[in-house]
Nucleic acid binder design. Sequence first.
DNA 1: GTATCAATAT
DNA 2: CATATTGATA
Length: 346
Amino acid sequence: MIKKLSNMDYKQKQERCGQYIKALEEERRKIHVFQRELPLCLDLVTQAIEACKRELPGTATENMYGQSECSEQTTGECTPVLEQFLTIKDSSTSNEEEELTDEHGNHDPDNDSEDKNMKSDWLKSVQLWNQPDPLLPKEEGTQEKMVDTVVKKDESMKKEAMANGGERRKREAEKDGGRKQRRCWSSQLHRRFLNALQHLGGPHVATPKQIKELMKIDGLTNDEVKSHLQKYRLHTRRPSQTVSSNGNSQTQHLVVVEGIWVPKSDHSTGRTTGGATTSGTTTRSTTGIYGAMAAPPLPQWPSPSSFRPSIIVEEKGSGSPSEEVVVRCSSPAMSSSTRNHYVKNI
DNA sequence: GTATCAATAT
DNA sequence: CATATTGATA
């Protein structure tokens, strides 16, 4: 009796583990669409899967009870996997959103051109594009411990936002005839923006008002969000389609669309972390900083582990006059309704 | 949602 | 001084 029970128990364990893995994999498929904005998330899930698989075949000593199928945002006590999450998170949390370390009030334009930091400093160098603000908000300090939905995250930099925008929002009717002072989109602000975007289902379905609300940043106006969204869209479109120029457009039925848009990488460290170090000085070939995210050269993310292209689109119809492409994704959010087909302007 | 203006940065 | 970026506005 008891033997049987324990045996069944074991089998159940295994089955549970399998289910868990399955769930994880599905989850990963889902967020794969957003790999552009949640590369680390994807990475985390992937690693979790691997870790789980490693444990499965061996002695299933670990206790897998308690969570029928925790899909990422489980409440917390999530077996060894959770530990993995935590570890990884700890190491990479800096670029998840706390990458703002105002360590450098000065960027040394001289000894910058090293690729020395090909770890994850991609954004580190971004932070200081603030206006000469006497307020140096040292907000950071927030070591959040939520690995969950990626959205609810920290609420830490609102103050900064206030300082930047809300405070000086008073219209100075001086020579500019009442034009507002520029809103400074810090990297954090932008990240919140991105989060909001993805929760609303993508840049093309999100409305500025919703975004603003979701960002929950005091002093932020709809127009500001709107403007930023516009710019974001402009830049996230494919800025360069350097491929296929030689009439061999049929060989390429798959093109990668969109990449990560990170706010203004600094003037020095902003090279592609991988591949051929673009010795800079290519100047902006109409694509500028955002250009390095299109198709063939593949993403240049600091993420050490495997990284696959972003959203994949495939050409529709071989004779269609309208060069239209459809995003192939399984995300319910993305694939809702008709707004998700990007028109190609080749 | 787009186009244009204006302030800055390069 | 010209041009590119980027946020504000029309």
